[in-house]
Amino acid sequence: MPQRDIIFPAGRTALYEKHAYSAAIRSGDLLFVSGQVGSREDGSPEPDFGDQVRRAFDNLKATLAAAGCTLDDLIDVTTFHTDPERQFETVLAVKDENFPAPPFPNWTAVGVTWLAGFDFEIKVVARIPDAG
């Protein structure tokens, strides 16, 4: 069984410490990233929805970078939305900012009723690039 290494982005531990989980786990050449939300450094939600989605992507990119990855390394994306019908246009606009051209990652969007005070969450699996 491959060793599991815990990954944390610099300066972003408040939410992880509060809820006792890891930002990401590296296992072999795969990175399993916990759901990233639009939290500020203190763990509180970004109040504006569009800014919350952008911050969630920024938090995701920081977690990926801590493991030597970028958005180009994504294999699987799952997003969670508290009000998909009203929010989807904003989410798609931010998605287009982060993935402006093919190849696009596969993507599953799920409507949920609760995200611990947040309205958007993004969870991914990435392949860690070969260091050699």
Rank of each mutant, 00 (worst) to 15 (best):
V112G: 02
I128N: 04
S27C: 09
K61C: 15
F57Q: 04
R55A: 04
N59Y: 10
T70I: 08
R127H: 10
G38M: 05
I25Q: 08
G43T: 04
P105C: 10
R127L: 09
W107D: 01
S34N: 09
I128F: 00
L60W: 06
V124E: 01
D58F: 12
D51W: 00
R55I: 08
T90M: 09
D96M: 13
F57H: 06
Q52I: 06
H81A: 08
Y16C: 13
V125Q: 09
A67P: 01
A56P: 03
D130T: 07
V112F: 10
R127S: 06
H19P: 00
F88Q: 06
G43C: 11
E41M: 08
Q52R: 12
G132V: 07
Q3W: 03
F88P: 00
V110S: 07
A24Y: 12
H81E: 08
R4Q: 13
N106G: 11
L92H: 07
R86Y: 05
P100C: 12
I25P: 00
A24F: 09
P2R: 03
Q36R: 14
Q36S: 11
A126W: 05
K61W: 00
P84A: 10
D73R: 15
T113E: 05
L30D: 04
D83Y: 01
A116V: 06
S22M: 03
V112L: 14
A56I: 02
A24W: 13
V53I: 13
M1H: 11
A24T: 03
D72C: 09
G50M: 03
L15P: 00
F120V: 03
E41F: 02
L64E: 05
P45G: 10
T82H: 02
V53R: 11
A109I: 00
F120A: 02
L92W: 07
K18N: 05
V37M: 11
W114L: 02
G50Y: 00
I75S: 05
G28I: 06
F32D: 05
T78N: 12
D76K: 12
R54D: 07
Q87N: 09
E121M: 13
V91R: 06
A20V: 11
A126R: 12
R4D: 03
W107Q: 12
F104E: 04
K18L: 15
D48L: 11
F49N: 04
G38T: 03
T82R: 12
D73H: 15
A23H: 09
S44E: 10
D58T: 11
P100D: 04
F99Q: 07
M1I: 07
A65V: 02
P2I: 03
P45E: 04
E121N: 15
P2V: 02
F49R: 09
T113W: 06
I75T: 05
G43E: 04
E85V: 14
L115C: 10
F88M: 10
D72N: 15
Y21F: 15
T113L: 09
A126D: 08
G111P: 08
T113V: 07
P2A: 14
E121I: 02
V112E: 00
A116N: 11
L71H: 06
R54N: 04
R55F: 00
Q36W: 02
F49Y: 15
T82S: 12
D72Y: 09
A66C: 08
W114I: 01
V37Y: 10
